[in-house]
Amino acid sequence: MKRHNLLTVAVVATSLLAVPAIYAAPASISSPVHAMFGKTKTSTVKLNLRNDTATSLQILVGDKPMTLEPGKLVNLEVPVGTRIVANSATPNHAVGSLIEEVIKDHSGATIAIR
């Protein structure tokens, strides 16, 4: 009788320990905790704007108004996602029209506005 009880206890104990191990997550998958608690770094892009029209242009770089003189090159360093919008009407751009939305690939580029 004792042997039967000891065997039963051993089988029950083994099954209780094995069941949670079956549903446990594999050890090889890492959880990216740093993605949730890390700081986000906003990357900036250096680019040039050139006014190829005969008149000066009013533009908005993000929320900042700027004037581009004809033929002049303006250097900018702006965060990715910044919108450059026409703030004065030209034959090719209406007021409020999007000239450029800055992306990382435009680093070092010169944008000619005509």
Rank of each mutant, 00 (worst) to 15 (best):
T55E: 13
S56Q: 05
L73I: 15
V74Y: 14
V9W: 12
D105W: 06
V45I: 05
M36I: 06
D52M: 11
A35T: 00
L68C: 04
I22F: 15
L98Q: 03
V61Y: 08
M66C: 11
L57R: 06
P32H: 00
H93G: 02
P91D: 04
M36P: 01
I103W: 04
A10I: 11
T44R: 03
P91A: 02
S43K: 13
T110D: 07
V33Q: 00
A86H: 05
V9G: 00
H4Y: 14
N92W: 13
N92R: 15
S31P: 01
L49R: 10
S88R: 04
P26L: 08
S107Q: 11
I111F: 11
P20R: 08
T82N: 00
P20D: 08
V102C: 01
T82E: 00
G71I: 10
L17K: 05
K41W: 13
S15L: 02
T8R: 11
G108N: 03
V45P: 11
L98K: 07
P70T: 13
A10M: 12
L73R: 14
P20Q: 08
K41T: 15
L47M: 15
I103V: 10
T67P: 04
V12F: 07
K72Y: 01
V80A: 01
N5Y: 10
T82G: 00
E69I: 08
T82S: 01
V85I: 15
S28G: 11
L7R: 13
P79N: 08
R50L: 15
T42L: 07
R3K: 11
V102W: 01
I22V: 15
A21Y: 15
K104F: 06
I59Q: 06
T82W: 01
F37C: 03
Q58C: 08
S30W: 00
G81Y: 03
S28T: 15
V74A: 11
D105Y: 07
L47G: 10
G81C: 05
P20S: 07
P70F: 10
